[in-house]
């Protein structure tokens, strides 16, 4: 399906609004550089040249939450860090998504004790969980692809009552 075949004589493309908006949102998603622990190193490996994430639009990790739309929680979240995490999430402008990378962020992982929050979904609503300890860079990219699919199926204007199953 080439764009040229749809252009016709007048140079006009028709599409649904939600498709265009979702296309824009997924193809240039900037993650917030929120690497906490070991998963952060695999996230950095995914960003580096061997498993390039810029192929998928994530060219740079923005340090400031005001400029980011995806928060990849990479690593274990401690009880001391939890308020900081929530504050950063609140500072991100809509639309925003959260990807919980690794076992510690998804469910507490190997650590079930006084210091670790058992799953970052106790603090922020999570869209995609990527399992692994740490997940391979390919697994992280797979998680990001699933997130892109989820966004493409969602409606940007109407609120979604049910979670989207991909």
């Amino acid at each position: 399906m080439g764009l040229e075949s749809k252009l016709g004589n007048m140079g006009v493309v028709t599409a649904r609004l939600e498709d265009v908006v979702n296309w824009g949102r997924t193809n240039a998603m900037w993650p917030l550089g929120f690497g906490l622990a070991c998963c952060a190193i695999e996230m950095m490996s995914a960003q580096a040249s061997n498993y390039d994430m810029s192929r998928f639009g994530m060219e740079l990790m923005r340090a400031s939450p005001r400029q980011a739309d995806l928060m990849i929680v990479a690593g274990r979240v401690t009880r001391k860090m939890a308020p900081v995490l929530r504050r950063l999430y609140d500072q991100m402008p809509e639309p925003k998504w959260v990807l919980s990378m690794g076992d510690c962020a998804s469910c507490g992982g190997v650590f079930n004790n006084y210091a670790i929050v058992q799953g970052v979904d106790e603090i922020v609503p999570v869209d995609v969980y990527v399992a692994g300890c740490p997940p391979r860079p390919e697994a992280l990219i797979d998680g990001i692809m699933k997130l892109h699919e989820k966004i493409r199926r969602s409606h940007p204007i109407k609120a979604d009552k049910e979670p989207i199953k991909v």
Binding site: G108, N113, Y114, A115
Partner: peptide, 14 residues
């Protein structure tokens, strides 16, 4: 002081 032997366990049931 969590590392004491009589400190509470903050263990979440799997």
């Amino acid at each position: 002081h969590p590392l004491r032997k009589d400190a509470a366990q903050f263990y979440e049931e799997p």
